[in-house]
Design a protein around this nucleic acid. Sequence first.
RNA 1: GGGCGUUUAGCUCAGUUGGCUAGAGCAACUCGUUUACACCGAGUAGGCCGGGGGUUCGAGUCCCUCAACGCCCACCA
Length: 736
Amino acid sequence: MSDTNKHIPEKFLSAYNPKESEDAIYKLWENSGYFNPDTCIEKKITDADAEHFSIVLPPPNVTGTLHMGHASMLSVEDILVRYNRMLGKRTLWIPGTDHAAIATQSKVEKEIYKKEKKSRYDLGREELLKRIGEFAQESHDTIVNQVKKIGASLDWSREAFTLDTQRTKAVYTAFKNMYDAGLIYQGGRTVNWDPKGQTVISDDEIVYKEMTDKFYTFKYGPFEIGTARPETKFGDKYVVMHPDDKRYEQYKHGQQIDLEWINGPITATIIKDEAIDMEFGTGVMTITPWHSAIDFEIAQRHGLDVEQVIDKYGKLLPIAGEFEGQKISVARDAIVEKLKEKGLLVSVDENYVHNVATAERTGGMIEPQIMKQWFIDTNKEFALSDSKIDGIQSGETTTLKKLMRHVVETKQINILPSRFEKDYYRWIDNLRPWCISRQIWYGHRIPVWYKGDEVFVGLEAPEGDGWEQDPDTLDTWFSSGLWTFSTLGWPDDTADLRNYHPTTVLETGYDILFFWVARMILMSGFNMGSIPFKNVYLHGLVRDEKGKKMSKSLGNIIDPLDMIEKYGADAARLSLIIGAAVGNDLKLSEHRIKGYKHFANKIWNITRFVLENTLEADLSENPTLTTEDEKHQKALDEVVAHITDSIEHFRIDIAADEVYHYIWHEFADKILEESKPILQNGTPKEVQSRQWLLYHILTTSLKLLHPFMPFVTEEIWQSLPQKDTDILMVAKWPRV
RNA sequence: GGGCGUUUAGCUCAGUUGGCUAGAGCAACUCGUUUACACCGAGUAGGCCGGGGGUUCGAGUCCCUCAACGCCCACCA
C-alpha cells in the first residue's frame, strides 16, 4: 500500500467483536423504520403493489424466557423475511406473545404456593389474575429483549398479545359466529378431568405415561373380571361380554344375576356388546360409565344408568359406603383387602404395564368425568359464506373436518416436509369434539351469560340485571387458532387483513402440528373463509450434542443468550441453521457455534483485505474484465442462482452452507490468494479489473450472507466507501 | 397395537429425479508466518454408505426383508 491519506476504518485492524456492535446495529434497523413495510413503501424501497410476503411469529408463551428452540425458529423466520424483503416484496413479520392460559396460571400458582403457601382459592379470582398479569408483563419484556438480541426483523409497531383488547374482540366474535352456526355447543359427555389442575383439558393435552401397576382379577358372581382400578368398581352393576362369545352363551342380554360385591349383595345385569375384546382377560368386564369414555358409549347404546363414583378432587362419593371421602390412591389397597377377605380376590398380577393418561401441564392423572362443557363440533354441517377456498363455493355446505382435509389435499396449503401430511389427516379422522372450556381463571372468559334458563352469547354482557357470565375460560388454543388474522385486525375490516392474509409461511415446530397448525386451518377456514397460510414449514427440535432433549433436569440446556454473549448472534444463528433440514431435529454443540464465530471474523478480515487494496481505486464504473476475472464473476452468478433457488425451496440449511462455503473456500482461499501477485505485479488493466472484481464479490457476498448473519454483514456494510444503499437490510438481493 | 423418522469418515451432517473414482465442517496428523485473518493457510490420513436379498448395463440413491436407535398416535377393561 502506498502512502496515502486514505485509511481503512480502524475497527478492521482488530478482530470482529460482535458484542461491541450488535445492539447498535439493531437500533439502526429499528430507527430506520424498515421493519415496517409501510415505511419501506413510503421511502420508495418497496413498490406499493409488490407481491406480499407475510409471517406471523408463533407467539412465545409468557411463561418465562426463550430457549434454543425459539432461537432456531426466529433464525429461520428472520432469514426468510430478510431474503424476501431484499427481493423487494412487501414484507411483514408480526411479533406477539401468547398468554398460554393453563401453562402460565399453573406456573404462577406454583410460585405463589412456594413463597406464600397460598392457593388460588385463598387469593381469589381478582388477586390471582392481577399476579398473573404482572408475571406475564415481566416475561413479555424479557422475551422481547431476547428476540431483539437474536436480530429478528419484526415490525414492533404491530405487536399483539393473545389476551389484549383487539384479540379478545376477535375471540368473542369467533365464538359467537361459531355458536350461531351451531358449531359451538354446550353438552354433557365424557371429558378429561385433571384433578390436580382442577380443570378439564382437551384430548390433545393428554400425555400417556407408561406405568407398571397391579392388575387384579375378582370374582363377580359366576364371572371373573379384571381391573387395575378397583376403586371405581362400587357402582358396577352391568357385566358386559361379546355376543359371539361361546363361553358365555348361556347368559342372555338383560338377564339379571344376584351376586356379592364390595359393600354387600347387588343385582347385576348382563349386557352383550361388540366393543368387548374376547381375547383380553376373561372376555368379561363390568362398566363404570361415569369414569370411562368407552363404558359411557356402551351405556348409551343400551340406555343404562350412569353414576358418579369419584368427585372432582379424586375422593370417593357416598356410593363407596365405608370408603366415602377417601382419596382413591389411599382407598385402593383397602378395597382390595376387603375383597380378599370376602374371598372375591382371584389373583394379582404385579407387573401390569399400561399407559396412563396424565395432564400435559400439571402431570395430574386424568380422571374421566361426565361434565357439562363447551365443545366445537367438527362434524356438523354448515354453509361457508364468502368462501375464498378453491373447490368450495360460497354458501356451500361443508364440515370443519372436510374443510381441514380439503385445503391440504388440494395443495392450497403446502406442508413441509410432506410426510407430516399423513399425521395431519390421521389426526383429523380421529378427532372427537374439541372441548374448549377450562375451569381456570387466566384466559378469555367465555362470552356467554345466563339468567335462569335464558342463555345469551355476545361480545358484551346483555342489558338488564341478573345476568351471570359463565365462570369458565377458553382453551388457549382457541385464541391462538385465530392468530394469522386476529393479528391483522380481524374482525375489523382492515387494510392489513386485505394486504397480508393469507400469510405466506407459517413456521413452527412439528410438535404443535395438531395443537396449533390444524386449529388455525379450522379457525381461518370458518371465520375467514380462507386458508391461514400457504406454506407450513415445520422445524425440528434442538437437542444437545448427544441427541438428548434439552431439559432442566438433565442440565444440558444451552442458553441462547449465553451463546450470543460468547460468540455473537450471527454465529448462534448459523449453528441453528446449517445441518437443520426441514423437519429434522438438530444436535447442537458449543464447538459448532464457535466455528461460526470464526466465520464471522473471516468475512471481517476479507473486508479488511479488500478495502486495503481498493482504497485508491475508482470502482464507480465497470472496467473491462480480464478473462480470468470474468470467469470468477460468472462463477459467482452461478452461486447466487443456486443459493436463491435453495431458499425458494425452503432449503435454507443448504443455502447457508453454500454461502459459507463460497465465501471461505472460494473467495478467501482461492480468489484472494491469487489476487496478491496480480495486485502487486499486474498491468494497470489487470489490477483495475481485479480491484473491481474483489469489491464486487465482497458486496455481493455481504448481500447473500445478510439474511443468515445480519449483524456482521450490516456492521461491515456501514463502513463500505461505496454502496448502492445506506442500509444493507434493504439492499436489493443480487439477481442473475 | 398402528404409523413415521434415522442409520454415510472419530463427531455433526450433505448427497434433489439411480451415473460417485462417495463429499463438507469439526476433530487428528505433517508442514507453513509470503499484502487480510492463528478466530489462519497448504497438505495427509480416515468410509464392506446398518445387515441380507432383489430390480438394473449401473444402487448411498429404487423394491423387499431384518436389526438398532428415536419420535408420534391409540378409551384393551
